[in-house]
Simulated scan of single mutants.
Amino acid sequence: MRIFETLADASQFARSRQHSATSAGQEEEGELWRYLRETTDFSHQLGQAYRFEDYLQGVPSTSPPYVSAALDSRQEATSRRAMALALKALAVTHGPEQARHALVLVHLVNFLADTGQLDDFADFFTHRLDYAPLAMASFATREEAEAWLKELEEPPSPARILIGDRYYLAWYSREDGSQDIARDFTIEPYIEELTARGIPPNSPSFQSRKEAESWLASHPASPFAFLSLAGEYYFAVHHKRLRRHTLHPVALSLSEWAAEKEAAKRQPSQRRTVRQSQ
């Protein structure tokens, strides 16, 4: 699991630098540190931790560090300026641990450039608040999702997927070969927060899901919208990359989220009870 710790440490390093730059009024530098920080999140959300780990094995160990030639052809300068900032941090950072974090950020930008993902990342970075939580694939049934997971040569590590109208987390451990698909309560907090603010009284109303989906096709939620379906409120979520919407029944979602939070509260006490009985 070391690669996950590596990405987490690099993200925290970039976050700290972003905070320092923003606090000093250096907004442009702060945005570049956010860019670098979100390369870790993008790679993690798309289940590419092990792919990045493999990429690192082929990166030449040179001084100064390798910089992808793909960056030279970029029309926009953000990726190049972010790379320059990471290289500068590497050069002036004191201590081997901090230097390792900066070098990981250098390699992440190279990784996205060499694997042709800079445009996808730029879209993620620029429009993140306009998109629903990222899901990398969509399936009608759990059986379809499990078959997909088993067929992958390198399964995600981990990544969110959609099964029907629900988020799940598909994961794989290279260390022991285990894999699974588990429910992921990622959209429910949004439903809870927005419902607490009040469901708009003029939310569109439909008698069937087919009618609602037809309307959403020409009025995509951006990324969320409330609607009424056969007299029940639903939370519509637009998944732009997957070109579909999910519809989440508000009452059921809130009930399931409340039960999940209650279960999470009980877990620490349950672990204490087990330890005390041993």
Rank of each mutant, 00 (worst) to 15 (best):
D72L: 13
T78W: 09
T93V: 06
A89E: 15
Q57K: 12
P64W: 14
T93H: 07
H94M: 07
A77E: 14
V59I: 11
A70F: 09
A86R: 09
L87P: 00
Y66P: 02
A69D: 14
K88T: 13
L85K: 12
M83Q: 15
S63V: 08
M83D: 03
L85C: 10
R100P: 00
V67G: 05
P96G: 05
H94F: 08
R100Y: 04
A82Y: 07
A70H: 12
Q75N: 05
A84H: 10
A82M: 06
P65E: 11
Q75W: 05
R74I: 00
A84W: 05
Y66E: 01
T78H: 04
S79K: 01
R100H: 07
S73G: 10
P64K: 13
A84T: 12
R81N: 12
A91W: 08
H94T: 08
G95R: 10
H94D: 13
P64C: 13
T78Q: 12
V92H: 09
L85W: 11
A86T: 08
T93C: 06
V67A: 12
L85R: 15
T62N: 02
T78P: 00
S79N: 02
A70W: 07
V59F: 05
Q57A: 12
E76K: 11
S61T: 05
G95M: 10
E97S: 11
V67F: 08
P96Q: 04
P60H: 03
A82I: 06
A99L: 05
T93L: 05
L85E: 15
G95P: 04
S68P: 12
A70P: 00
T93W: 03
Q98L: 14
K88C: 09
L87T: 08
D72G: 03
Q98M: 10
A91S: 14
R80K: 15
